[in-house]
Amino acid sequence: MLRSYLRLTLFTLGLLIGIQVPGFIEAYAQHVEARRLEAQEGLQGFQDTAQRFFNGDLDALVQHYRGSNDPVFQSDAQSVEQLLSRARMLEREWQAMQRPWYARAVHVLLGAERSLRAQVWSSYRFQVLLAPQAIAWGLSCALLLAWLVESLFLAASFPLRSRARRYKSYR
Rank of each mutant, 00 (worst) to 15 (best):
M1K: 05
R3N: 06
R3E: 12
Y5A: 10
Y5W: 03
Y5V: 13
L6Q: 08
L10Y: 03
L10C: 04
L10G: 00
L13M: 11
G14L: 15
G14C: 10
L16I: 07
L16F: 14
Q20G: 09
P22N: 14
P22F: 13
G23P: 06
G23K: 14
F24H: 00
A27G: 01
Y28I: 06
Y28W: 10
E33D: 08
A34P: 02
R36P: 00
Q40M: 15
G42M: 14
G42E: 08
F46I: 08
T49M: 11
R52F: 04
R52M: 10
F54Y: 13
N55M: 14
N55Q: 12
G56Y: 08
L58Q: 02
L58A: 02
D59Q: 05
A60L: 07
Q63Y: 11
H64Y: 15
Y65A: 07
S68E: 07
S68L: 13
S68N: 13
N69E: 11
D70H: 06
D70W: 07
D70A: 09
V72H: 07
F73D: 00
D76E: 15
D76G: 11
Q78F: 11
Q78H: 08
E81C: 06
Q82M: 12
L83M: 14
S85E: 05
S85Q: 15
A87Q: 06
E91K: 01
W94M: 04
A96V: 04
M97C: 04
M97F: 12
Q98S: 01
R99T: 06
R99M: 04
R99V: 02
W101G: 05
Y102H: 06
Y102I: 02
Y102R: 03
A103E: 12
R104P: 01
A105D: 14
H107I: 15
L110E: 10
G111D: 13
G111K: 03
G111T: 03
A112F: 12
R114E: 07
S115H: 06
S115T: 06
R117Q: 05
A118K: 09
V120P: 00
V120E: 03
V120F: 15
W121V: 09
S122V: 08
Y124S: 01
Y124A: 02
R125A: 13
R125G: 14
L129T: 09
L129F: 14
L130T: 04
A131T: 07
P132R: 00
P132L: 04
A134P: 00
A134D: 00
A134Y: 10
I135Y: 12
C141K: 05
A142T: 07
A142N: 01
L144K: 00
L144F: 15
W147L: 09
L148Q: 11
L148V: 03
V149A: 00
L152F: 12
L152Y: 15
L152G: 02
A156P: 04
S157F: 02
L160G: 14
R163T: 01
R163S: 00
R165C: 12
R166A: 08
Y167E: 12
S169Y: 13
R171K: 10
